[in-house]
Design a protein around this nucleic acid. Structure first.
Length: 245
DNA sequence: CGTCCAGGTCTAC
DNA sequence: GGTAGACCTGGACGC
């Protein structure tokens, strides 16, 4: 993938038929969340001293081609170091020649594979249970992409019902679904917030209140506030940002 | 070599 | 509804 004259161009070494081309296009649209219209958010933060810089086009969080993949990867981020997350997801891709495995593949992998090869510990059964439900058609995670069909509370309820997905996981997946209200609160974001906001301590409820003014985009505003230092200065040259909310 | 804990969640009170 | 305790793994740290 590369940018050509302001357009995203995807090129494959193999010849692709129309069907393959359409599915690749769908994956890219989903990955870059090209269907999301962030203009209401940009309008809201245009004069914002904390995250006004983001109105130049930030906030399009990279997602996986499928919701299933995002859910499984999110489980691989819980209660472990980032290096373990990388190790586990890499192991998963070894089941599908480097690509993320379809639910059917993960449903068919034996328990011993999860334990001895992926070394996912107690997460293995969670992943397999979800994969089996999707493969058998009892669970349709991709439908959560439909903004019209479900409200935030609905989606959150469905995500929390999944084994291995709690408040953190649900908020994380919802960001990737383009539902930006929930704040991702975990052992990385909490201290990072306290450091940036120069607060000795801040309860979750206090943090939520601090970002409540961003309404449906509170979670995205929180994330941008925390990750501003991931961007080059060039992109965030507006030094008005810097205080605490 | 033992303890702690990292981008939490589940179960049992 | 809120809260201890357990939970796989492996890297960091103290002794």
């Amino acid at each position: 993938m590369r940018e050509v004259n302001g357009k995203l161009v995807a090129q494959s070494a193999a010849l692709m038929g129309p069907g393959k081309r359409d599915s690749l296009r769908a994956s890219i649209v989903r990955m870059f969340r090209l269907g999301d219209d962030l203009s209401p958010f940009y309008a809201r933060i245009a004069e914002d001293e904390l995250i006004g810089w983001a109105a130049r086009g930030a906030g399009r969080i990279l997602a996986s081609p499928s919701v299933f993949e995002d859910v499984i990867k999110t489980i691989c981020t819980t209660n472990c170091a980032w290096s373990a997350t990388v190790r586990m997801t890499r192991a998963l891709t070894e089941l599908a020649e480097g690509a993320f495995p379809e639910p059917e593949i993960l449903a068919a992998a034996p328990d011993s594979w999860y334990r001895d090869n992926a070394r996912m510990g107690y997460r293995g059964p969670y992943v397999k249970t979800i994969a089996r439900a999707v493969a058998q058609g009892r669970l349709d995670l991709e439908s959560l992409l439909d903004a019209q069909q479900y409200g935030d509370d609905d989606v959150e309820r469905q995500l929390l019902a999944l084994p291995g997905i709690g408040p953190y996981g649900a908020a994380h997946v919802m960001q990737l679904l383009g539902r930006h209200r929930r704040l991702i609160l975990d052992s990385w974001t909490r201290p990072k917030y306290r450091r940036l906001a120069r607060k000795r301590q801040a309860a979750d409820s206090t943090i939520r209140r601090a970002f409540a003014r961003y309404g449906a985009y509170a979670g995205l505003a929180f994330w941008l506030y925390l990750t501003r230092d991931w961007l080059d200065d060039e992109l965030t040259f507006d030094k008005r940002a810097g205080g605490c909310p």
